[in-house]
């Protein structure tokens, strides 16, 4: 998923405004950011026949990253620690159903979980989009609704939150 990670970061932002939007989005994308570097270095493999992303996207790796993020923000209190850890952890349920391959339990475990909806996700659905696209669109819509509805509570005017939501919705339309 892509736009859904933005939506998750924004939704968490309204729940815990003491963690900035930049760090929250970086944490929501942390496994993907690691994946980019590791793939370029040849440590993780992107060819479908030899797909391997266990260091950045295994269940254990994401749990460890979430724990490290929570520990890094723990000095600011339980709320920020939970938000930081939760932002990383959100990557797990969002990627689990339709990742290119099952998420390994730990790097090089050889076994994993997820990708169970991959076949269904690739099936064509309404308006020329796939089931996977519509699933992500629903997740994006829910996250953006939480952001827009909660924005005023953390001092962000509705118009500004709406502009941010339109940007993320556009990302889903263009790249989802």
């Amino acid at each position: 998923m892509f736009a859904a990670h933005f939506a998750a970061g924004l939704a968490i932002r309204t729940a815990e405004p003491r963690v900035g939007i930049g760090p929250l989005l970086a944490l929501a994308f942390l496994p993907d950011l690691l994946w980019l570097g590791l793939s370029a270095a040849g440590i993780e493999l992107v060819a479908p026949a030899v797909w391997f992303d266990g260091w950045s996207h295994s269940v254990a790796s994401i749990l460890v990253l979430a724990a490290l993020a929570a520990a890094s923000w723990s000095r600011r209190g339980a709320g920020p620690a939970a938000a930081a850890g939760g932002a990383v952890l959100s990557h797990l349920p969002l990627d689990l159903p339709i990742h290119p391959a099952p998420l390994e339990w730990w790097p090089h475990a050889g076994a994993g979980v997820g990708a169970f909806a991959r076949g269904w996700a690739g099936t064509a659905a309404a308006l020329g989009k796939t089931n996977g696209w519509w699933t992500e669109a629903a997740v994006v819509a829910a996250g953006l609704a939480a952001y827009v509805l909660g924005a005023r509570r953390i001092g962000i005017p509705l118009a500004s939150a709406g502009a941010g939501a339109i940007l993320v919705a556009s990302l889903q339309l263009a790249f989802g």
Binding site: F6, L10, D32, L33, A163, G164
Partner: peptide, 30 residues
Amino acid sequence: MMTWHDVVAQLLLVVLPAAILALIEAGARR
């Protein structure tokens, strides 16, 4: 294996929207 061009392009797809979202928030708080 991904090239560094691919990495930069994908990185910008995350960084640029995140920067716009941060700017929107920063502008709203002024």
